[in-house]
């Protein structure tokens, strides 16, 4: 569908809503770039994202609009604010100085390229699959109802499997965030870990030699046992030393 056709199909309330939302978007975007205070920039971003949400509603994409508000304005901007606060709000950034040489030129060129691409794609008709994504979806029911339906039918197993992904995320975060030695639950008794420091002073001298040999014997006896036995023995030994 070409651009003039879209505009012709729009009613007056649609056009007004679009114009308002577009102004909100653009003003917000300008605010992100031009505000001196980073917190204000982040808040201006919220404005842009709300404007985009309105545009989504205008396009009958209610679900996308909701997700836009929940995910972007709700979560991502808050994340931005966290980062800004953590780094320090008052830190002066020299915005006008180029961090990388020639980044403005590159940004301009890339931006123009993306714009050209968008225009090109909007004008080209691609031969694509069976369903059209430009028109309204088939069948009765709202957008959200259809999404719900496909989550619980066509995409049931991906939906369920996502839970495994969440488990991975939790386990992974705990494993990586937990620093060693901070009351970490250990498979060994703590005293055992203390005694066997890997970077202890070297054992030297004849006395140490003898002790070495003794330990070697003990080690030999240990290897002779089965591992399961050794594991249990470790527990028993830990209990004794405790």
């Amino acid at each position: 569908m070409s651009a003039p056709a879209v505009l012709a199909a729009a009613t007056i309330p649609d056009a007004v809503t679009f114009a308002l939302a577009a102004v909100i978007c653009v003003v917000g975007a300008l605010g992100v770039v031009l505000m001196r205070n980073p917190v204000h920039s982040a808040l201006a971003l919220v404005m842009t994202l709300f404007g985009v949400a309105v545009l989504f509603v205008e396009q009958d994409a209610q679900f996308l609009a909701a997700v836009q508000v929940i995910v972007y304005t709700g979560a991502i901007v808050v994340l931005f604010l966290f980062v800004i606060m953590l780094l320090g709000v008052d830190r002066r950034e020299r915005v006008l100085a180029d961090t990388f040489r020639g980044q403005r030129v590159v940004a301009l060129v890339l931006g123009l390229m993306v714009l050209a691409e968008v225009v090109l794609l909007a004008r080209t008709r691609w031969t694509t699959g069976a369903h059209s994504v430009a028109g309204p979806l088939d069948g009765p029911g709202s957008n959200v109802a259809k999404l719900g339906r496909s989550i619980f039918t066509t995409y049931l197993i991906p939906f369920e499997v996502t839970s495994a992904l969440l488990v991975v995320a939790v386990v992974g975060a705990v494993v990586l965030a937990r620093r060693p030695g901070l009351g970490e639950p250990s498979g060994e008794a703590p005293d055992e870990a203390d005694g066997a420091s890997p970077v202890g002073p070297g054992a030297s001298g004849p006395g140490a030699e003898a002790a070495d040999a003794e330990a070697a014997d003990a080690a030999g006896a240990g290897t002779a046992e089965s591992t399961a036995g050794a594991g249990a023995a470790a527990g028993a030994g830990a209990a004794v030393t405790r």
């Binding site: 066997a196 054992a203 140490a208 003990a218 080690a219 240990g222 470790a234």
Partner: peptide
């Protein structure tokens, strides 16, 4: 090392521990 000396008495375990640092 600690595993292997586990069944040994406490003093032996202590010995081995001091050794195992070397």
């Amino acid at each position: 090392v600690a595993t292997m000396v586990a069944p040994v008495t406490r003093s032996a375990a202590a010995d081995a521990r001091s050794v195992s640092s070397g």
